[in-house]
Nucleic acid binder design. Structure first.
Lengths: 355, 355
DNA sequence: CTGAAAGCGCTAACAT
DNA sequence: ATGTTAGCGCTTTCAG
């Protein structure tokens, strides 16, 4: 790209192209080490020279060359986010919301964020990230019930944090929503309102959270000395369309369910649509509850009637993930650690009492 | 993070932690340079040793340390995407679609993508990126009519590509949608169908594309010896809500428009809703056309009736941007260059003939 | 309190 | 065809 310099705009530092430590040092009549120390507020540098150095650096628009600094300190001050490219392409995804949370923290803590999408071969991407040392650690997402990436990453010696949990022996750090408690609360609420024929519209069964939620669903029943109806849990994808289809199927069955507990607001929206299609009014003829992770443009309060839901902003996960990972790579905490985010159960108008 | 090694999973390279050029060289009885050359397919390296080196590297899981390599070659092989954090938070945004396109190309070309969100001070972020040399170039988005970043970046000597165009003297490279032609075609189509009372639901006036589209709107009229009605162009945000409000206002006016041309499918969706609210049937009582940039979950074909629209997938912009930027930083092309993406006009059921 | 010197891991010019 | 050497720009012992 051309480099036509322009007057004004930047105070006066037009020539801060060659702004490196050496030239700064020469200009100040100091050694590189002194300048370097002064800039990083090293003690044993008198206030006076520190100010002088800072002023000169400021004027020169100096900032340490990140690559050189990385090489010297052995850290990249960069973390990676590894995800399947398709998560950017699906219409219903909470990916960007997680990303927003991550971005916020990464920026706050003066780190950089490397985006590492992959098409199929995640293992290759992780291996590359690890061996090329481009990042100090990575955030990985969408854990399988038993996720092989944990062993791989431990083996690679690459620090990481998982968004979610998985059933493996190897140690790992994670941030997760409280799926168990959340689904148990939701189901319990419906039971306490007198519902018995409840259908759980759950996530796909190869994801660990879906298994956890299914178990929680049953636990809510047994905690009350009840038993869940057979085939009450549907393992389907997190979309409005499948919410709709699943609900339609059940609403057409001989024993019509009186309530649905959904894994996401997307699915709940589908259930609402199915209810309408069947001439049922949500909150009067049919109860619907869900977990609301605060995805942009699809929140519990967007529905009519407003949806009763447990809620944890998904961006909080992003913030937790990034914060934990940086703490880990900086050695401020020692892994493995886990964090389960709390949630609120917010009662709105989508539930009704039965009997 | 802990480093519990695990058997299996990775063939046998459990100790490829110390896999660097030096150890590889020693192990092979060669010099670092030879190994380095062999690995990068340098000529003047006999096939035989090349194979031997490659095999050893493969077995050791070796990959050059990206930071060291960057420092040596003077390039980071990384590009940055600078954007306002809020673009991740708004429900109606084409950001992720652009991102998907960028990701694809960056990965293909073996580059890394650094995400640089900012809250308010974009100038600071750009300055930091430039002086810390963390990236070879940046993609910037959402140009203002006269965008000060162009001068800044040229001054900083940071290679960049703009998504969109702007009215400045300084040279810059860009990839843009063909706003002018697209809006002129859309407006022309309506005029040719006999419409005269047409309202343009345009973007906010501080964005350059909105100005371009407004001009194109008028050009379509004058090209036919006609004149656009006064106050026919509305400069509003790209949301469904404003599409709705704007349309409602106009549909309640004394002279009711017979057609709307919209800047995005979001806005068109709002217009559809307004039409319904006024008891009008789109495609019979009211015509609606728009530019469709293929944003996930909001496409022309999602509406009923399907929306007549010009279309350029927004992810193509992302691909164009990344490809151009990498070509630029690698010196494969010389800036400034610009690329205007072609579009198709797809006739669907949202238009009707008047008189 | 400050400076000289080594080195992070790689590439590239300069030998040979 | 391969090795030697000198950096890339920074941080960091180790001296003074």
């Amino acid at each position: 790209m051309s480099t036509t310099p322009t007057k004004g705009l930047l105070p006066d530092k037009r020539l801060h192209k060659g702004a490196d430590l050496k030239s700064l040092a020469i200009q100040l009549g100091l050694s590189q080490s002194t300048v370097s120390r002064a800039l990083r507020g090293h003690h044993a540098i008198p206030e006076s020279t520190r100010r002088r150095v800072e002023a000169a650096a400021e004027a020169a628009g100096y900032r340490p060359n990140a690559r050189a600094r990385s090489l010297a300190i052995g850290r990249a001050e960069t973390i990676g986010l590894v995800f399947p490219l398709e998560r950017l392409q699906l219409p219903e995804t909470n990916f960007v919301d997680v990303l927003a949370g991550i971005s916020t923290v990464v920026t706050q803590r003066n780190y950089s964020l490397l985006l590492s999408p992959f098409r199929d071969d995640e293992v290759a991407v992780l291996g590359k990230l690890a061996s090329s040392k481009s990042v100090d650690g990575v955030i990985i997402t969408r854990p399988l019930v038993v996720d092989p990436r944990i062993a791989l990453l431990n083996q690679l010696g690459l620090t990481f944090v998982l968004h979610g949990r998985t059933e493996v022996q190897e140690p790992y750090s994670f941030v997760d929503t409280d799926n168990d408690a959340s689904f148990e609360r939701l189901t319990g609420l419906l039971l306490d309102y007198g519902h018995r024929d409840i259908v759980a519209v759950n996530g796909l069964s190869h994801f660990r959270y879906a298994a956890a939620r299914a178990a929680a669903f049953h636990r809510a029943f047994s905690a009350r000395g009840l038993e869940a109806p057979t085939e009450a849990v549907e393992f389907v994808s997190m979309t409005e369309a499948t919410g709709f289809e699943t609900a339609m199927r059940h609403l057409a069955a001989p024993v019509r369910p009186t309530a649905f507990v959904c894994g996401s607001v997307f699915q709940a929206r589908g259930v609402y649509r199915a209810a309408a299609a069947c001439g049922l009014t949500v909150g009067r003829d049919l109860s619907v509850v869900a977990h609301d992770d605060g995805v942009r443009g699809c929140q519990a309060t967007d529905l009519t009637p407003a949806l009763t839901a447990t809620t944890t902003p998904i961006s909080a996960s992003g913030e937790g993930l990034a914060g934990m990972l940086i703490d880990l790579v900086e050695g401020r905490i020692k892994g493995p650690v886990g964090r389960i985010l709390p949630f609120d159960l917010i009662l709105r108008d989508s539930v009704h009492v039965v009997r």
